[in-house]
Simulated assay, not measured.
Amino acid sequence: MTRALLVIDMQRGFNDVDFWGGTTNPACEANVAALVERWRDAGEPIVVVRHDSVLPDSPLHPDNAGNALVDAVAAVEPALFITKDVNSAFYGDQDLHAWLGAQGIDALVICGIQTNMCVETTARMAGNLGYDTTVVLDATRTFDLTAEVPGLGAVTRTADDLMASTALVLQEGGFARIATTAEVVSG
């Protein structure tokens, strides 16, 4: 089995808690760096994905400094670099699915931001496309979420709740295995 590390949206703009709100898992960036180091040492392919928001006020808009990758990821010479403006890395400026097929890659290890948005969407698609998919939960991060939802009223979930729900749904839905950085790095 050939595998790739898929690093999703590890961008400086996600450090803007005034914009995003409360967050969890401050070890995310260090854990992503550990995964990147492991893949680099093993000579395995790393795919880096960057979200280019179409919203001018978003920290992730290409004209804003927050669009830049965090240092540990910016230093990577990826086998493939993808920019996207939607939740799934499979819908970016490069055809991820075609590239993976051409490389003979049938397994993905996914990390990055946001756990319940781009990481989850990409993992679901990867699972549906038949990839052996692992999400390294402690190498992801998300933010508290509050919204008015028709039929439900005001709904609030903490970042911790969202991470747990994502892990549960991905695992029990058969989309992906959930792992820790320590398990993946030592495996």
Rank of each mutant, 00 (worst) to 15 (best):
46 I>F: 00
20 W>S: 01
23 T>E: 04
69 L>M: 15
96 L>H: 07
16 D>Q: 04
137 L>S: 08
6 L>R: 00
103 Q>H: 06
8 I>Q: 07
67 N>A: 15
67 N>M: 12
125 M>L: 15
97 H>N: 12
58 S>W: 00
100 L>Q: 03
84 K>Q: 10
68 A>S: 12
127 G>I: 07
145 L>W: 13
35 L>P: 07
12 R>S: 05
153 G>E: 09
29 E>N: 09
28 C>Q: 14
92 G>N: 05
39 W>S: 06
119 V>H: 00
46 I>D: 01
169 V>R: 14
39 W>R: 06
130 G>Q: 06
86 V>K: 12
186 S>G: 04
6 L>P: 08
96 L>T: 01
99 W>A: 12
158 T>I: 05
82 I>K: 11
46 I>M: 04
78 P>C: 01
180 T>K: 11
58 S>P: 00
178 I>C: 04
22 G>Q: 13
127 G>P: 09
72 A>F: 14
152 L>G: 02
23 T>K: 05
146 T>Q: 13
51 H>A: 06
175 F>H: 02
12 R>M: 07
165 S>G: 12
38 R>P: 07
33 A>V: 10
87 N>T: 13
181 T>E: 08
123 A>I: 10
179 A>M: 09
183 E>P: 08
77 E>A: 12
16 D>F: 03
40 R>Y: 01
77 E>F: 07
102 A>W: 09
41 D>K: 14
107 A>W: 05
185 V>F: 00
135 V>G: 01
158 T>M: 09
1 M>V: 14
19 F>H: 12
36 V>K: 02
106 D>S: 14
56 P>H: 02
94 Q>H: 10
44 E>P: 07
152 L>W: 04
20 W>F: 06
5 L>F: 08
19 F>I: 00
56 P>I: 05
53 S>T: 10
62 P>R: 02
10 M>K: 03
85 D>I: 04
72 A>V: 15
101 G>A: 07
180 T>A: 03
122 T>H: 14
54 V>I: 00
20 W>D: 03
21 G>Q: 11
150 P>C: 07
135 V>T: 08
168 L>I: 12
95 D>T: 12
179 A>W: 01
41 D>Q: 15
97 H>V: 02
147 A>H: 08
28 C>G: 03
171 Q>S: 03
160 D>T: 05
122 T>V: 14
57 D>S: 05
92 G>R: 04
46 I>S: 11
92 G>M: 07
22 G>L: 13
151 G>S: 05
160 D>C: 06
63 D>V: 04
54 V>P: 05
7 V>C: 10
11 Q>K: 00
174 G>S: 06
170 L>I: 12
162 L>N: 06
45 P>E: 00
44 E>F: 04
57 D>K: 06
140 T>S: 08
183 E>R: 11
90 F>T: 09
45 P>C: 06
180 T>G: 12
55 L>E: 13
136 V>F: 07
31 N>P: 03
162 L>A: 01
108 L>R: 02
154 A>E: 13
6 L>D: 08
76 V>N: 04
180 T>P: 09
186 S>M: 09
69 L>W: 14
69 L>N: 15
152 L>T: 02
77 E>H: 04
76 V>K: 10
150 P>E: 05
39 W>V: 10
59 P>K: 02
162 L>P: 05
